[in-house]
Simulated scan of single mutants.
Amino acid sequence: MNQLDLKGRHAVITGGAVGLGYAIAQRMLASGGTVTLWDMNEQSLATAKEQLGQGVTTVAVDVSRHTSVVDAVRDTLALNPAIDILVNSAGITGPNVKLWDYPPEQWMQVQQVNLNGLFFCCRELVPHMRTRNYGRIVNIASVAGKDGNPNASAYSASKAGVMALTKSLGKELADTGIRVNCVTPAAVKTPIFDQMSPEHIAFMLSKIPMGRFGTPEEVAAMVTWLCSEDCSFSTGAVFDLSGGRSTY
């Protein structure tokens, strides 16, 4: 493992109790940082805190609700004097169906969690970062937002929105000490696979030239570097993690 330096830095990781968020927390702790995990599931938060050990605090939050995010920022700052890093990892896939069969309420839920929730988190934490003129924000998008996966229109649309939001916010903060970037993984085997059909999982694998899924640790390595001081001249950028599927 290459050594990355997050000493003295504190990160908020949404969806941090499981999957990519958990792996990112592991890598950040190994890099000398501290983390606050945000997640809806209080039992998962308790388990993650016990497993990760020192340097971890937790706050239960529903990112799809603005008031919950506001409360979570307040509670996090009561536990830690500063928030240097925000990783928006919370997300859901929605059902794998054709667009004309997509249940409207589930379409709205995917947008509310994946895009609106990310907006709420950025909206409430950017002012705190601006007062200190330092911050790193990394949003977890997806190659689906670039390519548009069939039978996943809501997820694809939400992740395209994440990329556009990242570009806009990165430009808005370019004259500050805050950097905003996103990553676009292809399929990474995490518990989110439980939300997908076997046919959709097989489709995603067939599109990856490397012939394998990514690992949470590979995503965590790139995200952690993007959250370091070394990432100083990249902002509003989209970083690929697709095993060769997406090269633009």
Rank of each mutant, 00 (worst) to 15 (best):
D5K: 09
G170H: 02
S158K: 12
A78S: 13
K207A: 13
D75M: 14
T215P: 06
I24T: 13
F119N: 01
Q195Y: 07
A221W: 12
D75Q: 14
H128D: 13
A144P: 04
T190L: 10
Q43P: 02
V223W: 04
G117M: 07
P191S: 10
N80L: 09
S64K: 07
N88D: 06
N80R: 14
T36G: 07
M222G: 10
F203N: 15
M196Q: 13
N80G: 08
L118V: 13
G211W: 07
A164R: 11
A78M: 11
V70Y: 05
V113S: 02
A174M: 11
G211N: 10
K7I: 11
L165A: 01
M196R: 14
V69H: 03
V219T: 11
A30N: 13
G21F: 03
Y22C: 04
Y22E: 04
Q112T: 12
R132E: 12
S64A: 15
M222V: 13
S156L: 09
M163T: 11
V63S: 00
L226R: 02
P95T: 09
G170M: 05
L115Q: 04
N88G: 02
E105C: 04
C121L: 00
K98T: 08
S64T: 10
V126N: 02
W38H: 00
C182R: 05
P127W: 06
T247W: 04
C231K: 00
G91Q: 01
G32P: 07
F120Q: 06
V70M: 08
C231D: 07
Q26T: 14
M40C: 13
I192V: 11
G55L: 05
P191I: 01
E229H: 12
N96D: 15
R132D: 12
I83W: 03
P185F: 05
S234T: 10
N149C: 10
N88I: 01
C227S: 11
K207R: 14
T131N: 15
V183Y: 03
V223E: 01
T34E: 15
R74D: 15
W100Q: 15
E199T: 14
P81R: 10
F119S: 04
D240V: 00
F193E: 09
R212F: 11
Q26I: 12
N139G: 11
D71I: 00
A141I: 02
T176N: 04
L169S: 02
H200C: 01
M108A: 15
A23E: 15
T76E: 06
D194T: 08
S153Q: 05
E50Q: 12
L226Q: 07
N114C: 02
W107V: 07
V113M: 05
E42P: 01
F233E: 08
S206R: 15
A46R: 06
V138M: 03
S68G: 11
Q54D: 13
A221S: 11
R132H: 10
P216F: 08
L118K: 03
T67I: 13
P127C: 08
A141P: 10
E105N: 14
S153P: 06
S206V: 11
